[in-house]
Simulated scan of single mutants.
Amino acid sequence: MSIQSRLESWRNVSRFALLCVGDYGELISVELAETRARLTRELIALMALAVSGLFTLSFFCIALIASAWNTPYFLAVVWGVAIGWFAVSLIAWFAHRAQRPVQSFNVLKRELRADLETLKEALK
């Protein structure tokens, strides 16, 4: 390959890269907005679920303990409630650890990979 053809291929690659930079900027802004909106919705839903779930379970546990107040099973009920909460906490912790991390900016990653493959092919 001559120097002239090598320079021409590098010139074409640089033009292609410059054209793609604007597209990458647009993709970043679009995906950032989508990620922010999705995260906001998920956080609001999770907070509502956590607050309502904790209130429900708290009143249920208080009702269980109050039901066994003057019975011989009072201590068993109290310890049962405590062990139940501990089990729920362990299950929640294991469920959290088992989740896959959220993949953000997938479209941008795919575009960058495709463009890098194109550039590699153009420089061969």
Rank of each mutant, 00 (worst) to 15 (best):
V51M: 10
A76F: 10
A50D: 04
L7W: 07
G53F: 05
I65M: 10
L90H: 00
W69S: 14
L32K: 00
W85K: 07
R100F: 07
L19Q: 13
T40I: 08
R110H: 12
T40L: 07
L49V: 07
T71G: 09
E8T: 09
W85Q: 03
A45R: 06
I28R: 03
R110G: 02
L27F: 00
V107E: 13
V88E: 06
A92P: 08
L49S: 14
F86Y: 14
N12C: 15
V21D: 07
A98P: 02
S52K: 02
V107K: 12
R100S: 08
T40C: 08
G80V: 01
F94A: 15
G25R: 05
E26D: 15
R36M: 07
N70F: 11
Y24L: 05
A76L: 13
F74R: 14
A50I: 05
L54S: 14
S67N: 03
F105H: 11
V78W: 04
L64I: 02
L43E: 13
A68H: 01
M47H: 13
P101T: 02
W69H: 10
Y73D: 05
E34W: 01
T56A: 15
V21A: 15
R97N: 04
L7A: 04
V78K: 02
L54F: 08
E8G: 06
D23F: 12
C20Y: 03
L18C: 09
W10M: 13
A82T: 09
C61F: 14
A33I: 00
S104A: 04
F105Y: 07
I91A: 05
Q103T: 13
S104C: 10
Q103F: 06
A87N: 05
F74A: 06
Y73G: 04
R110Q: 15
F16T: 06
L57D: 08
L43C: 09
I83V: 06
R110D: 04
I91C: 04
V51N: 09
R97V: 07
V78M: 08
F94N: 13
R41C: 15
E34I: 07
A50F: 00
A17H: 01
L90V: 11
V51T: 13
W10F: 15
A98N: 13
A98F: 11
R11N: 11
T40K: 12
L32Y: 12
T71A: 03
A48N: 15
I91E: 04
A82C: 05
V30S: 14
V102D: 05
A66R: 13
Y24Q: 10
S52L: 12
G53D: 05
R36W: 11
L75K: 00
S52Q: 06
L49D: 12
S104P: 01
V81H: 03
I91L: 12
R100W: 01
R38W: 12
A87D: 01
E26G: 09
G53T: 04
L64R: 02
V30N: 08
R110I: 05
V21L: 14
R110L: 14
R100G: 06
L108Y: 02
F59Q: 10
M47A: 12
A95D: 11
